[in-house]
């Protein structure tokens, strides 16, 4: 399993995690899942958890889910995953991530250390929901406008 995305898209994900710091930031990955899974755009969202929990939890509401789905339709893309940040924490999925995970989706987790995004890794839930497995992130070259 490989997830392809451009350096520009990855930079946008990192920027969102840095801007949300010290809270968790999150959003959707929009793209295509055909012969390859490719992220073509992101749909950043504000964290809907209550103030006291946003440093270690994120929540995307059903209303925001519908907005993202409409945006994906508008761009003729699909929702193919979710990205979120782990402030001052490794970019491995937690037990809470697993309990709430959707099948099929790619989950990009970015470790943000002292306000600086340091690394992203991507994960997918396996069919029996017992664990995540890592998928390789393949960074593609920037595309000229």
């Amino acid at each position: 399993m490989t997830l392809r995305l451009s350096k520009d898209v990855l930079s946008q994900i990192h920027l969102h995690g840095e801007q949300a710091y010290p809270e968790e930031g999150a959003g959707f990955l929009l793209g295509a899942d055909e012969a390859e899974r490719v992220v073509q755009a992101i749909f950043p969202l504000s964290n809907s958890r209550e103030d006291a929990a946003r440093h270690n939890r994120y929540l995307i509401t059903p209303q925001d889910y519908l907005k993202a789905e409409m945006e994906a339709d508008r761009l003729n893309l699909s929702l193919i995953g979710v990205f979120h940040s782990h402030p001052d924490h490794p970019n491995r999925p937690s037990e809470f991530d697993r309990e709430w995970a959707q099948p099929f989706f790619s989950y990009i987790i970015t470790s943000v250390q002292s306000g600086k995004a340091v690394e992203s890794r991507s994960w997918r839930l396996i069919e029996d929901r017992s664990q995540f497995v890592e998928e390789k992130i393949h960074i593609t070259s920037p595309v000229s406008p």
């Binding site: 968790e24 994120y58 059903p62 979710v82 979120h84 924490h89 937690s94 959707q102």
Partner: peptide
């Protein structure tokens, strides 16, 4: 049917 999407680091 709409999923709430949630997660967060280990506590």
């Amino acid at each position: 049917l709409i999923p709430s999407i949630a997660g967060g680091k280990e506590i």
